[in-house]
Design a binder for these strands. Structure first.
Length: 400
RNA sequence: GCCGGGAUGCCCGAGCGGUCAAAGGGAGCAGACUGUAAAUCUGCCGGCUACGCCUUCGGAGGUUCAAAUCCUCCUCCCGGCACCA
């Protein structure tokens, strides 16, 4: 598909959903050079899953690959141990080398769900950052002033809010910028919160005698809570490895107002189609429930090809009809003919403590084969082989 | 180094000798409702087969019949001043 597209078409493909481009008009010039651009994306392995939020940027990287450009994926194994202060209101706890290595392995696997295998260059930034000596580090630090650092909102806020900022955190943008020098990036991608860091790459490349990279940022995808950006530490995320029905359900839980953003950033549905769907929503021709189902299917299909419809019906089975999912865990009961239900629930992992289990029973949240249970003491024969359910989402099949 | 402020449950934040398992908010969970795991309303929200008991208020000691609340030391954070460059 790359060869046949003219520059205008390429531009519109690449500019879809983009938040900021610096410098604004340079992309057309670079594309016109007709060579594969080196498009850098750096991700720090600080958490075990790739979320749809990361996938927004990864998809953009893929768009470049589709046009024949080289994806330079930088695994920030070194920088992960420094900790990106962007948007953080407090010092990030430092990760150990083992944690980082473990995350990196799991992430690489997940990246392949989004990126094409070619043209792809995967680099670990410890490769060049790990070997810098003190003189080189000092050289790097001489490029930027403390006042410039404090211009950053997140640093400023922490400073004003009496939160600690370590000097090491000041290093982070410099290291990330140095990555761009090391891989000679033409373009660097990132989330909107990365803009300042990405700009540092431009500054440093010029200091090191290279042409300054372009910077493209993608909007931050709002998480399932509809409030904050999608993040693993907040827990409002959808992971690309989530089970289809789970993924579908999480999509269904987002506020309606977020649908447009999700269609634009998290699917490949055409822009024109999205616009008309939104118009239909306003005029009443399109039912929000139906549209959100479509969104759910589209997203599931991207990560579990062919599983969209099944995920939807599994969702219906459990949440619309109050049914039981097909594959649930088993829990073996002991032989005692009299069973104390709270203990069973806790041992089966349905509740965190006996106290919580008793509360659930009191609140009418506990069912056996769909029938509400209101007593704590039950006969083994009354529950064996049946499905024990807490709330809408927690199930366990009791052993015979 | 000196002076002062601070550290409370998942998070924010009241409390400032007993009536504190600790107000309030947020998050979370459950019930009702719903196109929806949204919104709203209601309830729950340290542990313990539990009108009682146990473990919690940065850490370690101490005072007291009794401490999250008072004292001592320590750790960390913030601010100011000083010092060094």
């Amino acid at each position: 598909m790359a060869g046949q597209m003219n520059i205008t078409d390429q531009l519109s493909h690449l500019m879809r959903g983009v938040d900021t481009v610096v410098p604004e008009t340079e992309l057309a010039d670079r594309l016109a050079e007709g060579r594969p651009l080196r498009v850098k994306l750096g991700l720090d392995p600080t958490a075990p899953s790739v979320t749809l939020g990361w996938a927004v940027v990864l998809r953009k990287l893929r768009h470049f690959q589709e046009l024949g450009h080289t994806a330079v994926l930088i695994v920030g194994d070194f920088t992960a141990q420094v900790g990106d202060p962007s948007g953080k209101s407090e010092t990030r706890k430092r990760l150990s080398a083992e944690e980082v290595r473990g995350y990196a392995e799991r992430l690489l696997d997940q990246f392949s769900k989004v990126l094409l295998p070619e043209p792809l260059e995967v680099r670990y930034n410890s490769e060049w950052l790990g070997g810098l000596d003190m003189a080189e580090v000092l050289e790097l630090t001489s490029k930027v002033t403390v006042a410039q650092m404090l211009e950053r909102d997140d640093f400023r806020k922490r400073f004003d809010g009496q939160q600690p900022i370590s000097v090491m955190e000041f290093m982070y943008p410099l290291l990330q910028g140095y990555d761009s020098v090391a891989v000679e990036a033409d373009v660097e991608l990132g989330g909107a919160d990365q803009l300042w860091n990405l700009m540092m790459g431009r500054v440093l490349q010029e200091r090191f005698g290279q042409r300054a990279q372009m910077v493209m940022t993608m909007p931050l995808l709002i998480g399932t809570d509809g409030e904050q950006k999608m993040s693993q530490s907040i827990g409002n995320y959808i992971g690309v490895t989530d089970e289809p029905s789970d993924m579908f359900g999480k999509v269904m839980s987002i506020p309606d107002a977020l649908m447009r953003q999700y269609f634009e950033l998290a699917t490949e549905v055409g822009v024109g189609e999205i616009v008309s769907a939104m118009e239909g929503l306003v005029s009443g021709d399109v039912h929000p429930g139906d549209l959100k189902r479509r969104l759910g299917r589209e997203i599931v299909e991207l990560y579990h090809p062919g599983a969209g419809i099944a995920a939807e019906s599994a969702f219906d089975q459990v949440f619309r009809q109050g049914g039981v999912p097909d594959d649930i865990d088993e829990f073996a009961l002991d032989d005692n003919p009299d069973q104390w239900l709270p203990a069973v629930m806790t041992e089966a992992g349905l509740t965190a403590s006996n106290g919580e289990a008793r509360r659930m029973i009191r609140q009418g949240a506990v069912k056996v084969d769909g029938d509400k249970i209101d007593t704590e003491d039950v006969l083994r024969s009354a529950i064996a082989g049946r499905v024990l359910q807490v709330g809408k989402r927690r199930f366990v099949r009791l052993g015979p």
